[in-house]
Amino acid sequence: MSPELIKRLTEHQPSLIGLEQCRQAAVLIPLLETPDGVQIVLEQRSPKLKHQPRDICLPGGAIEAGETPRQAAVREACEELLLRPEQIQVFGLMDVLHTNTLMLYPYAAKLTDYDMTYSTAEVERVFCVPLSFFQTQKPEQYRITLPVHPPEDFPLSRIVGGKQYQWRERREDIVFYQYQDWTIWGITAKILQAFARITR
């Protein structure tokens, strides 16, 4: 092997294959210190939003060009909760969530002088859930199956089995928490389930 090839192999920094097909986003896990213990601030999305109206979520959104995931999480939290960056003390990156279509970076952070403000353009309301709830409550879990649908021009004749090829179905666990009247589910619930394991 040539020295150039060996150099390329030994100095390569691995990345995730297919990452360019994933939407990359970041969220903040906003923590408040209260007399009743640490609380997590959650949002109910505005009914005016096109995607997931009225779902419960963490502040966050897409990572913009030239922006780090951490910068995106702070920027989105400032926009959605009407915060100033100096009100956010970021502790660090928590467990990253990766699906076929999304790479999501969650950052734990403490909020100071936060008065439950929010932007009505994106948020219908905000509320708090004790961290201890997620640490002690076992979530419901349901497995869904997502079938494969090749496009019409897919070259089935070139693979063994052709039209009868046995595609492996994609399975995904969907997590639910019920806190009072609030249903916290999906990606938000998965992020909080992982966060509870870290903090428990």
Rank of each mutant, 00 (worst) to 15 (best):
I6F: 13
E11A: 14
H12Y: 11
H12S: 09
Q13W: 15
Q13N: 15
I17K: 13
G18L: 05
Q24M: 08
A25P: 06
A26N: 02
A26E: 03
L31M: 00
L32W: 03
E33G: 15
T34G: 05
P35Q: 08
V38N: 06
Q44P: 05
K48S: 13
K48P: 09
K48F: 09
R54G: 11
C57W: 00
P59K: 04
E64G: 13
E64I: 11
A65F: 12
G66A: 04
E67R: 05
R70Q: 13
A73Q: 02
R75K: 07
A77Q: 00
C78F: 04
E80I: 07
L81D: 02
L82P: 07
L82V: 14
L83D: 00
R84K: 14
P85C: 02
Q87L: 01
Q87N: 02
Q89F: 14
V90Y: 04
F91S: 09
T99R: 07
T101G: 08
M103K: 11
Y105Q: 05
P106A: 00
P106T: 03
Y107F: 08
A108C: 03
A108V: 00
A109E: 00
A109L: 06
K110D: 03
M116E: 14
T117H: 07
S119R: 05
S119V: 07
V123C: 03
V123I: 10
E124M: 13
V126E: 05
F127V: 03
P130W: 00
L131A: 04
K138F: 08
P139E: 03
E140I: 03
E140N: 09
R143I: 15
L146Y: 11
P147I: 05
H149G: 12
E152N: 13
P155D: 01
L156T: 13
V160F: 12
G161W: 03
G162D: 00
G162W: 01
K163A: 06
K163D: 11
K163I: 11
W167R: 06
R171C: 09
E172G: 05
D173G: 10
I174M: 06
I174W: 04
I174E: 03
V175N: 04
Y177G: 02
Q178M: 04
Q178C: 07
Y179R: 00
I191W: 01
A196D: 02
I198C: 14
T199K: 08
R200I: 06
